[in-house]
């Protein structure tokens, strides 16, 4: 079997005296769809931040595409084929939708691990337009991103991540606050991406979305991983039910 695209082992992160992550192992196979669950404050976002480089892990290592990356800065990791979306959308508010996407096209990995492109010319605008259409924002391509609705902001987040041509996409609550119809729209988008070969980690509270989407689920509680396996058995796990669903 091939090496996993992402393999984080023994990740420890402490803030002052508080241990946010305690020896967490987390891996993603190539082409896999993984759900990451956990109550608020369980360490999901901290784990994502340690994987993407927004935070530095205190111990353990992160291997991405056969390379150790946990001492690289975030943009270096992004350029190696990783992308993320933010729980609270963070658009470049002075730019239009298309310009937002062009930033990632200009600076992130680009297709087939080539060097990031150095021109701002037409090819780029075409690429941006293609992605804008893919997420269904083509009518709003030239609107300021600051004026978008919640669902469109979520789409923009995804579009910007897609523009980085990632091999692994980490979607941090990409559907929070959306209606059922909108959730399905985003889910379909993520599935299409996955079919195109992108491995996806989905961090989500919306249970039905995770169950529908994930091939495997990992559960974090209070900085420890308490379960990791196929969705049905994880949900049936009494520890998970106790910690996450009930009491």
């Amino acid at each position: 079997m091939a090496e996993p695209i992402l393999s984080a082992t023994g990740i420890v992160k402490t803030f002052g005296g508080f241990t946010a992550l305690d020896q967490v192992d987390f891996s993603v196979e190539r082409g896999e769809r993984v759900g990451l669950l956990g109550p608020n404050g369980s360490g999901k976002s901290t784990l994502v931040n340690c994987i993407t480089g927004t935070l530095r892990n205190d111990a353990g290592q992160v291997i991405f595409a056969d390379e150790r990356i946990d001492r690289l800065s975030t943009h270096q990791r992004i350029r190696r084929g990783m992308a993320r979306t933010f729980q609270i959308p963070r658009p470049f508010h002075s730019m239009t939708v298309r310009e937002n996407i062009e930033i990632a096209l200009l600076y992130a990995a680009g297709p087939a691990d080539s060097e990031p492109r150095r021109t701002t010319h037409d090819a780029n605008a075409d690429d941006a337009m293609r992605i804008v259409e893919e997420v269904g924002l083509h009518k709003k391509a030239d609107e300021r991103s600051g004026s978008l609705t919640q669902v469109d902001l979520r789409k923009l987040e995804l579009a910007r991540a897609m523009a980085a041509h990632p091999r692994l996409l980490i979607a941090d609550e990409a559907m929070a606050g959306l209606s059922t119809g909108e959730v399905d729209e985003i889910l379909a988008l993520l599935l299409r991406l996955n079919q195109a070969g992108v491995s996806i980690v989905m961090i989500e509270h919306i249970m039905y979305a995770v169950m529908k989407f994930a091939q495997r689920i990992a559960v974090l509680v209070a900085g420890r991983k308490i379960a990791d396996g196929d969705p049905q058995s994880v949900i049936a796990n009494p520890d998970v039910q106790k910690a996450y669903l009930g009491e």
Binding site: T52, T54, S73, T74, H75, I78, R79, A83, R84, F86, R90, P91, F92, H93, S94, M95, I103, A104, Y107, A108, A109, P116, R160, A163, A164
Partner: peptide, 10 residues
């Protein structure tokens, strides 16, 4: 506009 988002866009 947003330094963290910029870094995460490469």
């Amino acid at each position: 506009d947003d330094e963290t988002a910029a870094e995460c866009s490469g």
